[in-house]
Design a binder for these strands. Structure first.
Lengths: 334, 334
DNA sequence: CTGTTAGCGCATTCAT
DNA sequence: ATGAATGCGCTAACAG
């Protein structure tokens, strides 16, 4: 009981209760966001007392009993995992709208990831959004004291909800676009196929090529980066002259574009058509008019938030939510 | 006392103590990272018991008494405030190395910022890194229950430590570079001067122009973005032909470069020299060889971490830590 | 060096 | 509808 609230100490709910002349329990109920039974008069007095004292509930103490911190973790390998900043900006903003705050975990260079995660508040978050492919769903579930692990990295399982881009649709559109323009021979520039997402992506391209009777002259391997695209650019014609080059990231396409800028006039191809992937906002810059494949960020974020806001909407066994990708024509593809 | 640890409940320190046959206090001390007096034998037993039970301390409970959560908040307006991703990536990584986790707050679109901050765990963080210019030091201190608010937005005061780029050095170098190449007439493209950082930056340019006897034909105002640079590009020659154009952001310089790409051959100027600001990693892309001004990100992060790791090293009244900027020549400046 | 005790601030029984 | 009492899991203060 705080008969004499120390001037330097932050007011607690006991102080509020004392000032309002009620018990702590009543004060707690009156201050609760949930509608709990409290006499109207007392509720009023409690609210006024809280106001007057500048009372702020201690959320650490609260979470001790409620077992909820209103915190969600976002796990990335590096910052660049969020292939586009606009996506992350939107995601962060929307999560905050839910009244939750975001703790950002970069596991790229952490040696003992599990220890690192366990020894921080992140262990107690209400939900985990996994962009990094550092672990599969089962491992992630073991690493956090939460039932809600949202797999966005393609390594999910039936126990955890997942939201994934449906890459097939966009890739099919892009390849059809090329085929319709008379493309016959193509080159594919990929990232490392260690991530399952990339493996799927590559399969989609292969299938689409086969369907349209396109000939795959060669497959070059990069690491999604601009520099690796630049490097791939040098060996682009090693296996013959392609009519089109498909890249599994915009950054690599930009590297290639820069190596072969002479083959483009006003961004339009004279030697081969160029297709990227991700629909980076950067492709709006004049110098990199890279035709790309992407999904509506707003839809993607909406699906994530739907699950975050109402975890009950997912039950084990449900398939991943799919957000369709679409082909985004730009001059590099003619 | 947990005589019979429920199988579904996570083991607490009481369980560990019981299994090890010691009191909770001893278990607590043995598990502490600080070196506390415990008999070697008991410490061993406690550690084994913890191991065996898979005990993980509840940091929320711990922080309730220690009043420290090992959490630092980073406040930005939008994600793009971290003008370069590489900086943020490094910063995040280094903070984690300190054993702290990062909660990222985007206050850009939040209506009642103060309420938002108070109603989340962020209120309890150990330190706050303020990149956003949404508030001055005094306000920020009121918004968090922490003594450690690190001002990185130029709105600091004597009570809080600050780390700032010393823009003068780099700007002086850039302008000197231009003057040495015979530049006489210049145009300045700025962001909104509402932020004090931008105001300082503009003053530096003006002073440097005056010192070298350069004539400022006109000042165009953008908002740091590529699009605003693009827009400014159209009115570049309204007040005469400049020999050089200085921009207070690389993005704006890139917009201008794209509007006037015909005036550059292989990135080198034929009509006017172009200078940016920020030294974005993007300027390594061939298409945007923008000469720029920047600081060593590693130094900047190191200064921040120095303060974070040892808050005692700052005492009220100390001036901001200054990280020098340098001119980074690239072909756009000839 | 060790065990007992008393909180940290809050939500939640369970009687009334 | 209310209040007294209990517990969340842990650390700190105090005796021994």
């Amino acid at each position: 009981m705080s008969q004499d609230p120390a001037p330097d100490r932050k007011p607690t709910i006991s102080d509020v209760a004392a000032l309002a002349g009620v018990s702590r329990a009543v004060a707690s109920r009156a201050l609760s966001s949930e509608p709990r039974p409290v006499a109207a008069g007392k509720r009023q007095r409690v609210l006024e007392a809280a106001q007057q004292l500048g009372f702020t509930p201690n959320l650490l103490a609260r979470s001790l009993t409620t077992r909820s911190v209103n915190l969600v973790a976002i796990i990335v390998n590096h910052i660049h995992d969020l292939s586009d900043l606009d996506l992350f900006d939107l995601l962060l903003s929307e999560i905050q709208t839910l009244g939750k705050q975001v703790i950002l975990l970069r596991v790229g260079s952490v040696d003992r990831v599990e220890d690192f995660l366990r020894s921080g508040i992140a262990w107690h978050v209400d939900a985990v959004l996994v962009f990094s492919d550092f672990a599969d769903a089962a491992t992630v579930r073991r690493m956090f004291d939460t039932g809600m692990t949202l797999m966005l990295n393609g390594r999910g399982d039936a126990q955890s909800p997942a939201v994934l881009a449906d890459e097939a649709s966009g890739i099919a559109e892009a390849v059809a676009h090329a085929a319709a323009r008379g493309v016959r021979d193509v080159v594919l520039v990929t990232g490392r196929a260690t991530s399952s997402v990339e493996a799927v992506r590559i399969d989609c391209y292969r299938a689409a090529f086969a369907q349209h009777g396109l000939r795959l002259l060669q497959t070059l391997q990069g690491d999604y980066s601009y520099d690796s695209g630049h490097a791939a650019g040098s060996s682009l014609f090693d296996a013959g002259e392609p009519d089109a080059v498909f890249c599994t990231s915009d950054a690599m396409a930009m590297g290639i574009l820069d190596v072969h800028r002479a083959s483009f006039t006003d961004g339009r191809p004279t030697r081969f058509r160029l297709y990227g992937f991700d629909d980076l906002s950067l492709t709006h810059f004049d110098a990199y008019p890279v035709a790309s494949i992407g999904y509506a960020k707003r839809d993607y974020v909406r699906e994530i938030l739907k699950i975050l806001a109402d975890p009950g909407c997912f039950s084990p066994g449900m398939p991943p939510v799919r957000v369709p990708t679409r082909f985004v024509p730009r001059s590099s593809a003619g």
